[in-house]
Design a protein around this nucleic acid. Structure first.
Length: 359
DNA sequence: AATACGTGGGC
DNA sequence: TGCCCAAGTAT
């Protein structure tokens, strides 16, 4: 089928779709930018509430720029890939400083923002400014690769280039690049889904290569995944009268900028011995460990095993971090594995006697 | 080009 | 339960 007829079919299908997403129509470039960043590698249902909270808290780029990275990470907590939040703050400051607070219009300027790659720059250009760009995300490359039987790898540059070469000429001729892109994405998200595509209801099935060959599951190609490496995080949960010792993660590593307890990382599942704890955390040998609790968190490329060693220390005698109260801890963004621990163990902030009584 | 970066939902 | 997937980007 000629690609222009193909696109006309999809636009026709899309004319009866209304997903009613808050960033869809008459949104500012700023809000479209926020929505696109939040939606990177994130399902719409998962990002929706974060988007609402985010624009409520930072209605303009000025509000975002004058915020702090720590505040931003707290709003972002639980969403994942938090470098997105750090880059958002960085870019907001740049927009205020270098673009006079006005969101850039030129594709090259938009692309130059940290955290904005080709997909996001294209999406903003099309949705906010009706410029002829194609935002190729996983939805779009999936249906195009299935329809034409393009044997390229998922997310590969070659597939993106191929998809663009097919769709861009059509978008350039159409009056609304925004409408085209929304239709392309929605079609992949709602009809040509990753699992169990709705070929029965698909307006393109009769001319679809993947459907004809019963090979929709084979496109696009997927590379074998590398096994996840395990990392063992040993945390000293040092408490004293409603306070606990906290550090901020500053290295270029997972959970950068987020908070945790004093950490020692090892390469084995073995519990740290009392001697190890004394050495690594500089605590007195008479300090007793109240409990050792383990949590596990599975990430895309890692499995984090967190072990939490609870003990009582005297505030002021410890230099391995900053003492914080419950209220302070509730206001900071914490690393995922620490969040798991705290969800079950908030009793550590109760007074010492209650902990001794085992409650 | 390959790898790292989070988290939650679906089956 | 274990595995796949998600409106990708930076290095």
């Amino acid at each position: 089928m000629d690609s222009s007829i193909l696109i006309a079919t999809i636009l026709d299908w899309h004319s009866e779709i209304d997903r009613n997403l808050p960033w869809k129509y008459n949104s500012s470039p700023y809000k479209i930018w926020i929505s696109e960043i939040i939606l990177q590698q994130t399902q719409v249902v998962q990002g929706l509430r974060y988007y609402e909270r985010f624009v409520d808290r930072y209605p303009t780029v000025h509000d975002l720029a004058s915020s702090t990275e720590s505040d931003l990470l707290k709003v972002w907590e639980g969403l994942g890939y938090n470098s997105r939040a750090r880059y958002l703050h960085q870019s907001a400051k740049r927009i205020v400083d270098e673009f006079g607070g006005k969101f850039p219009v030129e594709y090259s300027d938009i692309l130059s923002l940290k955290g904005v790659g080709d997909y996001t720059a294209s999406a903003i250009s099309a949705f906010a400014y009706e410029q002829p760009h194609v935002a190729v995300d996983s939805n779009v490359e999936r249906w195009v690769s299935r329809y034409y039987g393009i044997a390229s790898y998922k997310s590969s540059q070659s597939l993106k280039t191929e998809v663009k070469s097919i769709l861009l000429p059509v978008v350039e001729k159409h009056e609304s690049p925004a409408e085209c892109n929304q239709a392309f994405i929605d079609f992949g998200a709602l009809v040509c889904t990753a699992k169990q595509p709705k070929c029965i209801d698909c307006p393109l099935s009769q001319t679809c290569y993947g459907y004809a060959q019963s090979k929709t599951a084979d496109y696009p190609l997927v590379k074998p995944k590398v096994p996840r490496k395990k990392r063992y995080f040993h945390y000293l949960v040092a408490v004293d009268n409603g306070h606990v010792v906290i550090n901020k993660r500053l290295n270029k590593d997972i959970w950068q900028g987020m908070h945790e307890f004093p950490l020692y990382e090892s390469d084995s599942l073995q519990d740290l011995t009392h001697q190890d704890l004394c050495r690594y955390f500089d605590i007195n040998e008479s300090t007793s460990i109240e409990s050792i609790i383990s949590y596990q968190q599975i990430l895309t490329h890692r499995i984090i095993i967190g072990k939490f060693y609870l003990c009582k220390l005297k505030r002021g005698t410890v230099k391995i971090g900053q003492w914080m109260s419950v209220d302070q801890v509730k206001k900071i963004a914490v690393a995922g594995i620490v969040r798991l621990y705290l969800a079950d163990n908030m009793f550590i902030f109760n007074d010492i006697n209650k902990i001794e009584n085992g409650k």
